[in-house]
Structures are given as structure tokens and as C-alpha cells.
């Protein structure tokens, strides 16, 4: 049996009091416990940013990598050992800005891992600049006349690229979010969960209450996430009502299944065979 305590990290937390990341961390623990994944059987890969520090505050295997580069690193790890259970923690700047190209291509590859984008619509760690998801017109110390670009819609992009599991969560709804993470991890293929998350230090617009008033639960609406057009409409719904839940789910052959050599087991477990190499060298 796995309990919450198994995931308690002795490493001191560094987030601001009241940070939206706490809700995500707790929801992750709930999901991991309910899936009965032992800490030593979990790998978390993350980029750089406040979100990417998440694995330090859990007990697990982790690679806290470069800004924007978590997905290619996780892809490499998964190719080396496709039995690994991999969660990726990233932020809106990390994933959609610095790592935008990797984000698109990870979706194309459909590697079996779960990506959590902690989307607080601001750069927290560098103190409050606009992020790729900041709303048009948002004023920051760095954009004093307001943001003049349209926000990046990660969910719509993911749907357009054929992602098989596309969901939106809210850090203020732990139970709902842990269900999304559980379902994302059970999904065989690339799963994206974009998580609305307040930044108590730098985003005075998209606060807990702002989200709470707007979020409505697709699970409660008996929404069937099997239609791409409907999912696209929901991905673009923003303003007075914002849907949270699984927008789209459709399993297809994941990346590792396309690679014949992996039928013999994970790459790390296969044997080196000098005779086989010598035959090629002598050819």
C-alpha cells in the first residue's frame, strides 16, 4: 500500500505562501497514491521555473532539467526504458514559450507520458513579466502598456496536433485535478493537463476567486470527450465560463509501439551481443 506519507519530501518547500502550485502538488500525491505507484517507481522530469521545482517537494526519482527542455529529455528517458512511469511538470513559460517547439513535436510523437502545465499566465520566478498565456492587454512591470500579443492556447494547439488526451484542471479544485492526473497517467500515450493556477505574487487578475467564479466541471455536465470539434470549442472557451475536465480522449498507437526493437523489452534490459556486431563489422 502506498500512502501520502510515502511521498513526503524532507526538502524544504520554496514556493510563496498561498501559491497555486501547492494545490497541484497535493493533487499529484492523491493521484499517485490512488494509482498505488511507489515513489521509487515514479520519474518526474521538469524544466525550469517555479512549477519545475515541484519534484523537489515530492519523494521520487527526478531530473530537474533545463528551461523548456523537459519534454525531449523525458522522451529520451522513455525510449531508453519504456517501462518508466513519467510525469512532466512544466509552466506556461517553460512549456509554451522556451519549449514551444518541443511541445509540438512531443505531441506528434505521442510518447506515453503525462504533461502537467502549471499555467499561471505569468513569469513568477523572474518576477512578474508576461508569459505566452497572459491575456491581451495585461499590464506588468515589463509590459507597462499591456501585452500586445494574443495568448497561446496550449489546449487548442494540442488538439490541432492530434493529442489523444487533452484536459484542463484548476489548482483550486484538488479532487477534480487529482482525477485528471489519474486519468492522464492511465492513458496510454501523450496526455496534456493544462492547469489554471493563480500566482499570488504577480498575477492580480487571474486570482483564486476569478477562476472559481468561472470554472465549470465537465464531469458534472456529462460531457463526452470523444468529439474533436466539440473539444476545440471548449478549448477556446474563455471568459465568463471556463470548462475544466477532460476535453478530448482518443487512444491511438503510442510512440514505443511503433518501434519494433522495443518488442524485445526496454532498451536498457537488452543484451549486448559481440557476435552480432562482429558479423556486421565483417560484412
Amino acid at each position: 500500500m502506498v500512502g501520502i506519507k510515502d511521498y513526503e519530501s524532507l526538502y524544504k518547500n520554496q514556493w510563496c505562501p498561498g501559491c497555486g502550485n501547492f494545490g497541484i502538488l497535493e493533487a499529484m500525491k492523491d493521484a499517485l497514491v490512488s494509482l498505488e505507484i511507489l515513489p521509487e517507481k515514479l520519474l518526474i522530469v521538469s524544466g525550469i521555473g517555479q512549477a519545475a521545482k515541484t519534484p523537489h517537494f515530492l519523494k521520487c526519482n527526478m531530473f530537474h532539467a533545463l528551461h523548456g527542455r523537459a519534454l525531449p529529455l523525458a522522451t529520451g528517458a522513455k525510449l531508453a526504458n519504456h517501462d518508466l512511469k513519467i510525469l512532466v511538470n512544466s509552466g506556461d513559460g517553460d512549456c509554451y514559450g522556451e519549449g514551444g517547439n518541443h511541445f509540438m513535436h512531443a505531441i506528434r510523437r505521442n510518447v506515453d507520458l503525462t504533461l502537467l502545465v502549471h499555467n499561471n499566465k505569468t513569469y513568477g520566478l523572474t518576477k512578474g513579466q508576461a508569459s505566452p498565456t497572459s491575456d491581451f492587454g495585461m499590464v506588468t512591470p515589463m509590459q507597462p502598456r499591456g501585452v500586445i500579443s494574443e495568448p497561446f492556447n496550449g489546449l487548442a494547439v494540442a488538439l490541432a496536433l492530434g493529442a489523444g488526451f487533452v484536459a484542463r484542471g484548476f489548482s483550486g479544485n484538488r479532487e477534480h485535478l487529482s482525477r485528471l492526473i489519474r486519468e492522464g497517467m492511465q492513458f496510454k500515450g501523450f496526455s496534456l493537463i493544462d492547469i489554471m493556477q493563480p500566482c499570488v505574487s504577480f498575477n492580480r487578475i487571474n486570482t483564486y476567486n476569478w477562476y472559481k467564479k468561472r470554472a465549470y466541471d465537465l464531469f458534472e455536465e456529462d460531457y463526452m470527450p470523444d468529439d474533436l470539434e466539440n473539444a476545440m470549442k471548449l478549448a477556446r472557451q474563455w471568459g465568463d465560463r471556463i470548462p475544466i475536465g477532460v476535453l478530448y480522449r482518443k487512444e491511438k498507437q503510442n510512440f514505443a509501439k511503433h518501434i519494433d526493437v522495443l518488442n524485445k523489452g526496454p532498451l536498457i534490459s537488452q543484451q549486448y551481443d559481440p557476435a552480432r556486431l562482429q558479423a556486421v563489422l565483417d560484412a
Binding site: L43, V45, F63, A65, L66, R69, P72, L73, A74, T75, G76, A77, K78, L79, A80, N81, L84, N101, H102, H105, L267, I268
Partner: peptide
């Protein structure tokens, strides 16, 4: 190339 180098770091970290 950024993905290439990070992917091989991931693979090496995982053991190959």
C-alpha cells in the same frame, strides 16, 4: 539539435 542533446541526456540518465 536542442531536442537531440536533451534526448540523449535523458536516455543516458535512464541507463542506455
Amino acid at each position: 539539435e536542442i531536442a537531440a542533446v536533451n534526448a540523449i541526456i535523458g536516455a543516458s540518465f535512464a541507463g542506455t
